[in-house]
Amino acid sequence: MIRMATQKDSLEIAKLLWVIFEDMELPLLKKISKNKLLDMVAESVGEPTYRFGVNRGLVYELNGEIAGVIFGYPSAEEPIIDEPFKKVLIKNGFDPNENLFIDKETLPDEWYIDSVVVNKKFRGLGIGSALLNEMSETAKKAGYHTIGLNVDMANPKAKKLYCSLGYKKVADLVISGHQYEHMCKNLIDNLHVK
């Protein structure tokens, strides 16, 4: 079952996102302990405007467990998505300028999929595809014609999945020192266009 993320999911969400944080080799991981950082991300999940806030996330629940999560938002909101986490950094005595994410990730006028992650024990069941398709519906309902995401060039398996769902490469980006391909999908039904 796919549902909106809730505050009670926050620590489990943070733990799933940790895989992405490590893959991206985010600099903050070297400055704050894993448990502390997980707690801080979990605290921020309750803030609706946060990158990983409850209003931006969908959870795939299977047999009472969170099998996967996805987060997305309008690209125009990228400048504000990390403000809640900066407040948590300050509250915990850290420099707010040393945020988890510092690079621009979106392109103009798109709904952006920030993160999608599936728990290892539930991979291969179509959960990632289901979450991506549901986020496309969320974007359409919000009036967006394009949905975008970034895929690490070192992750061809993920790129293959995105291509199978209709995403196409439109740009190259560097995020946290890694090379990414920015991929977009048109959300408008082209079947009746002549």
Rank of each mutant, 00 (worst) to 15 (best):
V118G: 07
Y60E: 08
D152P: 02
N63F: 02
N97P: 00
P48T: 03
G124P: 06
T138A: 04
E137I: 05
T6F: 00
W111D: 05
L62T: 05
N119D: 15
L16N: 14
D82P: 00
A171K: 13
D189A: 13
G166F: 03
V193H: 12
E47I: 00
R123P: 01
Y60C: 09
F71Y: 14
N186W: 04
Q7T: 10
E12V: 11
G72K: 14
P74V: 01
I188E: 15
D172A: 14
V170W: 00
D23Q: 11
I113D: 04
K157N: 10
G166D: 10
A158N: 07
N35T: 05
G46I: 02
R3P: 08
Q179P: 01
A14E: 04
D189Y: 14
L37G: 07
F94C: 08
E134V: 02
P84C: 11
L149R: 04
V88S: 08
E22Q: 15
E77A: 07
N155E: 05
N155A: 02
E22T: 12
K87G: 04
A171E: 15
L26R: 05
I32P: 06
L187H: 08
G177E: 10
G177V: 03
D9W: 11
L149M: 08
S33R: 11
N63Q: 13
K8Q: 14
N35A: 05
K121T: 06
K8F: 01
A67C: 11
L173Q: 15
K8L: 02
M40E: 05
N155Q: 05
P84I: 04
K160V: 01
V193W: 04
I175S: 09
A139M: 06
Y162V: 04
L149V: 01
E47C: 07
N92I: 06
G143L: 13
L28C: 03
A14R: 11
